[in-house]
Amino acid sequence: MKNIELTSTTAQRIYKDYLKRVEKCLTILSKVDRQEMLMEINSHIFEGMQRFSDNNETDNLLTVLEKLGTPKEFLKPVIADKKIAQAVRTFNPKDVLQALLLNFKNGIIYSVFALLYLLLFVFVFFIASKIIFPTKTGLFYLDDKFQAFGFIQNIDGMNDVLRFWFIPFVTLSAIIFYLLITLLLRFTKKK
């Protein structure tokens, strides 16, 4: 991206600082999206500066930036939108978490998804439990009838049908669950 040529060093510093703030707000976006937005803001500043006929560069720059607003404030919606799109495309848990946090305020639907994702920790808990209490964690049957799944204090006469398959089974279920809710999230965005 070509920077705007400014003669005063003060103006240069203000300009660079502003662009840096914009860039910082956009770090969670992909490189292409970030570059695009940055170029557009840069173009806005340039066009704004052209509208002045006097030579008070620093004053004019400050006026343009003031009217444009605080990057952190006005960029909020675009970041939230793009983050969701990115999250459902990549399946990256970090993206999903960021997207949900950014969109949390946008409505009840995202709160529901946040809860669903939180449920994933139950699986983690089961695995930890199996490691600490191997005999008391599992899928328990008593005389071919389902009794419990997970951690249970009293296992008298019960049979753990999964045994050492418990951890692989729970891990696989967690992955499937994760894929399902992320696909669901993608679907809600597409409607």
Partner: peptide
């Protein structure tokens, strides 16, 4: 309006394919 707010709006309109853009 805070002029900056227009850019997220344009972004959304573009995503909804109501507007197109070119450099």
């Amino acid at each position: 309006i805070a002029e900056g707010t227009l850019y997220p709006l344009l972004n959304r309109l573009k995503k909804e394919e109501l507007v197109s853009s070119k450099w």
